Simulated assay, not measured.
Amino acid sequence: MDVRSEPDVRSAAVTIPAGGAELPADLLIPPEPAGVVLFAHGSGSSRHSPRNTAVAHVLNGGGLGTVLVDLLTPAEEQVDARTAELRFDIRLLADRLAAIVDWLAAERPFGPAPIGLFGASTGAAAALVAAAARPELVGAVVSRGGRPDLAGPALGQVRAPTLLLVGGLDDQVITLNEQAQAALPGTAELTVIPGATHLFEEPGTLDQVATRTTTWFTTHLPR
C-alpha cells in the first residue's frame, strides 16, 4: 500500500484482488470515516473519471471515505476499447464490485465504516446487482445518470436504500429510472436535476449530484 499524507485525508494506492483479477484502486480516507463509498464508473470510463473524482472529494469533505477503482484490467480495457462488450457485461462488473465489497469488509482500510455504492451509467446496474448479492454489507446505493434497468431481476432483491439521480434533459433515462424505481422493493427515491444532460456537464449540475449524494449516504448508511 502506497500512502501519502494530505491535510485531513489520507490517500492510498492499492491493488484489490477480485475474481482472479488484480484491480488498481485509489482510496481517500478521512479521519474516522462515517462510511465508505465504492464507485462503479460508467461505459468506457476509469477510476480517473473527472466527474466521479469531483463527487468523491465532496464526499470526503462530508466525512466519507471513497474508493475509485478500475473494474477492468489493462488487457480487458484494450479489448473493450475495440469491442465495447465488457463495459456492458453487468454480471462481470457486479461480481468484481461484490469482491471489492468483501475485501473492504475483511481488510477494513476504513475501519468499521459501513459501505455504500455509487454507480454511473452502466456502473449503476452493476452496483445494484452487487448490492442485491451483498445485502448484509451494502448499506446504501446512489445511481448517477444510471441504467438501473440493466440490473434485471436483481432490482427486486435490492434492500439498500437507493437514490436515482437523473438529468432533467435525459428523457429516455428518466423513463428507465422511473421503471426501476417501481421495481425496487425498499426505499427508492428518484431525483431529477433540472437542466442537466446525461453527463451532468452543465454548470452547477454536478455540484447538485455531489451534495445530494453526500446527504443520501450520511443519512442512510447504518451508524
Rank of each mutant, 00 (worst) to 15 (best):
D102G: 05
A140T: 08
S143V: 13
S46A: 11
T122M: 11
A81M: 01
R147V: 06
A99F: 06
P50S: 06
G152R: 09
V69Y: 00
A120T: 10
G111Y: 08
D102H: 09
G42T: 04
E136K: 13
E76I: 00
V129W: 12
D102C: 07
H57Q: 14
G65S: 01
A56I: 13
V37P: 02
A125T: 13
I100T: 09
R91H: 14
G62D: 15
T162H: 03
H41D: 08
L97E: 11
G156M: 15
S45Y: 08
G123M: 12
F39Y: 11
S43P: 04
D95E: 15
G111I: 02
R108C: 06
V138T: 01
N60H: 12
A125Y: 14
S43Y: 07
D102E: 12
A131K: 11
A160Q: 09
R91V: 15
A120Q: 07
L155C: 02
R96T: 09
E76S: 09
G62E: 15
N60P: 13
G123I: 11
L38D: 02
L164S: 05
R47Q: 07
G63C: 08
P153R: 03
R47E: 11
A120G: 13
L64W: 05
T162V: 02
A113K: 00
D102A: 10
G65I: 00
T162F: 05
P50E: 09
A151K: 12
F118L: 15
G139K: 05
S43A: 10
G123H: 10
L72Q: 06
D89P: 01
A160G: 05
T66H: 04
G62L: 13
I100Y: 03
V69P: 00
F88P: 04
D89C: 00
A75Y: 01
A131Q: 10
L164C: 00
A131R: 09
A94S: 14
T73C: 10
A120Y: 07
H48T: 04
A126Q: 11
V158R: 00
V79P: 07
V138K: 05
G145I: 04
H41C: 03
R144F: 12
L86G: 04
L104C: 05
L93P: 06
V69N: 06
W103T: 02
A151P: 11
P74D: 15
P74Q: 08
L137Q: 12
D89H: 02
A113M: 08
S121E: 01
A98L: 07
P114Q: 03
V141G: 00
L93N: 02
